[in-house]
Amino acid sequence: MTDNSVAVVSEPSRRASFLEQLPLLVALVVLWMLLWGSLTPLTIVTGIVVALGVTRAFYLPPVELSGRFNPFWFAVFLGRFLGELAIASFQVALQAFAAAPVPRSAILRVDLRTRSDFIMTGVSLAVSLVPGSLVIELDRTNARLYVHQLNARTPDEIEKARAHVLSLEHDLLRAWGSRDEWQAVRS
């Protein structure tokens, strides 16, 4: 189990406490009930058993949540994300049919301001899910993403793409970042 300590940069060699695992357990039980499509005592009990078994058998390093969650701003983030997803999907779709579909792309480096693995994962997911941008490499120690961006030719467009990733980070920090990180980005 010593290998797992690597994942927690700040506090090495520490197993996740029960409280830290609770959100994961709850999520697993809810998923179990959704898969069965029913909310009965039997699915709750078997769900808890399976969730405990899974988290014991496939032990993952604890995910450090920030301890702050703002549902309103998270809804704003989700809405923005879905909107961008829809628009970008159709843009890339139309480009596939365009007369000369040779998109010029760029690989850009984006230095995130957050140090939280959780936020970094969220930003990477959002960036990768929206068509047109894709995280192809990431450097966890320096919170640095390498984003492959479709249709970025001019320096202007490249800076715009970079600013876009950072603004996604801004929005996610507003919803889910720790107080310190949100204050730092807020300006």
Partner: peptide, 21 residues
């Protein structure tokens, strides 16, 4: 559109973008 993009886009990384929609 994804299938067409997969056929027409020039390289693997660009095709990957077409695939995600």
């Amino acid at each position: 559109a994804a299938a067409v993009g997969l056929i027409r886009f020039p390289d693997a990384l660009a095709r990957l973008h077409a695939a995600t929609k």
